[in-house]
Design a protein around this nucleic acid. Sequence first.
DNA 1: CGTGTTTTGAGGTACGTGCCTCATGAGCAA
DNA 2: TTGCTCATGAGGCACGTACCTCAAAACACG
Lengths: 346, 346
Amino acid sequence: MSEIGSRRRATVHDVARAAGVSLATVDRVLNGRAGVRAATAEKVEAAMLAIGFQRDLSASLLARGRDLQVVFLLPDRSNEFMESLAQAVERRARSAAGERLDLHLRRLRPLDAQALARELDALHPGACDCAVIVGSETPSVLRAVESAQRRGIAVVTLVSDLPGSARRHFIGIDNRAAGRTAASLLGRFCPTGAVAVIAGSLSLRDHQDRLEGFGAVMAAEFPRLELLGPVEGYDEPQQTRSLVEELLARNAGLAGIYNLGAGNAGLVAALTASSPAGAVRVIAHELTPSTRAGLASGCIDVVLDQNPDNEIRQALRAARQSALGGSAKIATDPIEIAVFLRDNLR
Amino acid sequence: MSEIGSRRRATVHDVARAAGVSLATVDRVLNGRAGVRAATAEKVEAAMLAIGFQRDLSASLLARGRDLQVVFLLPDRSNEFMESLAQAVERRARSAAGERLDLHLRRLRPLDAQALARELDALHPGACDCAVIVGSETPSVLRAVESAQRRGIAVVTLVSDLPGSARRHFIGIDNRAAGRTAASLLGRFCPTGAVAVIAGSLSLRDHQDRLEGFGAVMAAEFPRLELLGPVEGYDEPQQTRSLVEELLARNAGLAGIYNLGAGNAGLVAALTASSPAGAVRVIAHELTPSTRAGLASGCIDVVLDQNPDNEIRQALRAARQSALGGSAKIATDPIEIAVFLRDNLR
DNA sequence: CGTGTTTTGAGGTACGTGCCTCATGAGCAA
DNA sequence: TTGCTCATGAGGCACGTACCTCAAAACACG
């Protein structure tokens, strides 16, 4: 790859010649069409490997003549993070036009498994190649996912996985690692005292995972710190605010707070109102207007974030691969756990 | 974008019809060829805007029939980070084949401005569309960059910018923000004592920037901490090791170290040998085998990183845009300052 | 007005793949 | 053998853009 002015790239014609078969047969193998003997298919695949054939995506998409239809099913009126995910989809939809991607966004009632299942069932192949969903782990959703997959619609889970389901791929952070990271930082920040944990709902898998990671590192590395909670704020600003105010009132020596759920507007409001900035070390999740303000004012120390734009980009990569690559396993970059302080805000 | 089964996308034919000109004229405008009156060009551009035309990248690349030639000029035998950048290029080179990108990697003697200038001068358009370089801010390099740009070769700076030059675009982190972040963390980690700064070379712009950011936050927010240094280790493990050993020996109460340069193998060696793990809070740059080991063993607390794969990806985006987009300004995602602890190692 | 130059139009081929039809071959069972 | 199915080959058109040639039209200038 170092020499400049390299030779011509291998095409399907070259594969056909190398395998000693016709173009039609190569095409059938390449696109998983029926009517090819196993022995012949192997011969073709060997030839592709031998001459290093790589399908030209540009030509492939062009020849297909039709754009990849990707439907995003995201919670509506939920929380700021879901809003920024939706915005990332819209941003991407504009530039995606040049890459033969057609993005569609549907917002659904948060935590309404029935609604999600209904939307999934309503998708029909031909009008939708891939569905990207944020959903909870309920029987109706699992069934709808399997049904969609069987109809030829690739399902990608976003942010919160459905490990037992038929979903094709998952895009999101390692939430256990996120919890560990929060503990590791909060432990170093707080010399002594008590640390409180606030969750959205422990029935959400990502929240559960974060809690586990946090607890493990706290127990192992910072046994000197007392753990309070977890308490649940159901990702609502009002409830979260009450919880935080109560925590601050009842625990004079509170050293740190880890909010592993959403509802950060309430967290910031309570902190701003009732305590001198900087008295309590605070770690929260997802960079949103609220947490950004919290970082700027100093009442939040660290925000752990999953970059929405990157998540959407990776989801689209997965969608493309599932459409082009047949049944090969999908490869996407892992989503990093971004750590933000006031000083490296993007 | 929400409705499924959307209408056909606009093509050059539609633009021609809408503008009331021929296909040839649209083509001339689109590809910046001569022989079009200003008034006509404006008419065409207005039509493109009106019907929302977006050039089909797939078809465009296919029709061009030739791959985009991108040459990376990176320092050789330099440090682990440059090595991982090079590996990212090679990784990407494999998958880039399907996207009509042809990547070439040249390694040069580190900090040898003459060599870099010579390589740039040797590139000739037609065999190279875009050069991605990591270079220092010297007259010979600046001149070579300008010359390359004039010959029609887009120059993209990577990691370390050349702000005064004719370079087309810069890909890298905000190093001042990185320095601020280091100070913000180290300040929270260290209740009291002295904090030492180690640089590679203060003649490197990125190191200078980090130092400035670090010093600013330290002075403003943590005046209780005494600052030692900066000392220069010239990014070499041996020299860096000696510096650290000396620091540890002379300052019994040393609370923290910020190594804003490379040479981390020496840092880890010195820390492992002479001090009980965890006694000194340490922040370093770039996730490499050395810093990874340091995080795992506990002798490094935090690593600030710029993701090489992402940087290469963005550099290629810039290359593509400079090749296709004419003189429009290049848009890439900013490179985030990644923060790694033992617990969120990827 | 004519002459020369510039701008525009018309139409073609090419890129590599997807997908279609039709013909022919091989293989098998009765 | 005949009749059938299945595997494969041959070839063509399409996708949207790039780039080429040649001719026609519009314009500038004396």
